[in-house]
């Protein structure tokens, strides 16, 4: 089976082998080599490499919409940040009484703002499963609503690029406001535990790196399958001859919407894996410049290749 796969698609084979190698070797090197050994990988380096893996996933997600469907979406960073905030909210709730104010019911920044109770949209985030659901649901839903409005009105090209920039900019401004209840300027930070384990420990960092690597591999394989499906060919056809696709009976707006939402979900997952590894999420992640940077990764790595976004993300960083 491996041989068949290798012969069918060498680039994909090597890429998956490389990611698989990182996932296996880096944590192993951290555990088996003592700190003074030249082969030792520090906990800090693990997080850096894990972070790159999440960027790679983000790059892959943009390649789907831009590289394959031709939608130059300049707001992919917004979905990444929303995924990050979702896990960040869970991590905030995990702090419990260990915050500066020792308040089990409210995160520190809310106590500081003199809030008396938890806003409704924070409900549920003390459960890990709920956070996981939101990581997928919030970016997916926003992409669905935004995409439905934009694609149905046939907003394309530079106009679409501009409104996606506006979207992420609007979110940036909103999340900056203290009253929004997401920690304002400072964002969410000082995380202590993930599923009851110390988030700073080498073991948790190694697990996060492994999770990031596996998520990237899985996303790559699924994306590959999507692109090789008939839907993938319709998407490519839309990129090259949008009007023509309508005349053979496909609802272009629904196909664009599908790939846009799928990519937003991938970006959200990337963001959720990123935040525990860097220990903070703040509104600057919504910065329009961040989204532009993702486009540069994909452009450098090669559009419409799937591995382009991955390679570009790692190269640039």
């Amino acid at each position: 089976m491996f041989k068949q796969f290798y012969e069918h698609d060498k680039a994909a084979f090597w890429l998956l082998t490389l990611i698989g190698g990182i996932v296996f070797l880096i944590p192993t090197a951290n555990i088996i080599f003592p700190e003074e050994s030249p082969f030792h990988v520090s906990a800090y380096s693990i997080s850096i490499i894990g972070k790159y893996l999440t960027f790679a996933l983000l790059g892959l997600s943009l390649d789907l919409v831009w590289g394959y469907c031709g939608i130059l979406a300049l707001g992919q960073g917004a979905f990444f940040a929303l995924g990050g905030y979702a896990i960040g909210m869970y991590l905030m709730r995990q702090i419990g009484t260990r915050g500066v104010y020792g308040n089990a019911d409210l995160p520190d920044f809310m106590v500081f703002l003199n809030w008396q109770e938890l806003p409704w949209y924070w409900y549920g985030f003390n459960h890990f499963w709920f956070a996981l659901l939101m990581i997928v649901l919030v970016p997916g839903l926003l992409a669905y609503v935004f995409g439905w409005l934009a694609f149905r009105s046939r907003v394309t090209g530079v106009y679409l690029s501009i409104i996606t920039q506006a979207l992420t900019y609007a979110l940036l401004l909103a999340f900056f406001r203290n009253e929004m209840g997401f920690g304002g300027n400072n964002g969410l930070t000082d995380f202590k535990e993930l599923l009851g384990f110390n988030i700073q420990s080498s073991a948790v960092r190694a697990c996060l790196l492994i999770a990031s690597g596996l998520a990237l591999m899985l996303a790559f394989v699924v994306s590959k399958w999507v692109i090789n499906s008939k839907l993938g060919r319709v998407i490519t056809a839309i990129r090259d001859q949008e009007a023509r696709v309508r005349f053979i009976g496909y609802r272009v707006e629904l196909f664009k919407l599908w790939i846009f939402v799928f990519a937003a979900v991938l970006a959200g997952i990337a963001g959720a894996l990123y935040v525990p590894q860097v220990g903070i999420i703040n509104p600057s992640e919504f910065s329009p410049l961040n989204s532009l940077e993702i486009v540069i990764w994909v452009a450098i790595g090669g559009r419409g290749t799937l591995y382009g976004g991955i390679i570009g993300a790692v190269l640039v960083n």
């Binding site: 999507v226 499906s229 008939k230 839907l231 319709v234 053979i248 496909y250 609802r251 599908w258």
Partner: peptide, 9 residues
């Protein structure tokens, strides 16, 4: 020519 039937076609 719906989206899901096309994905699994």
């Amino acid at each position: 020519k719906g989206v899901w039937p096309t994905l699994f076609a």
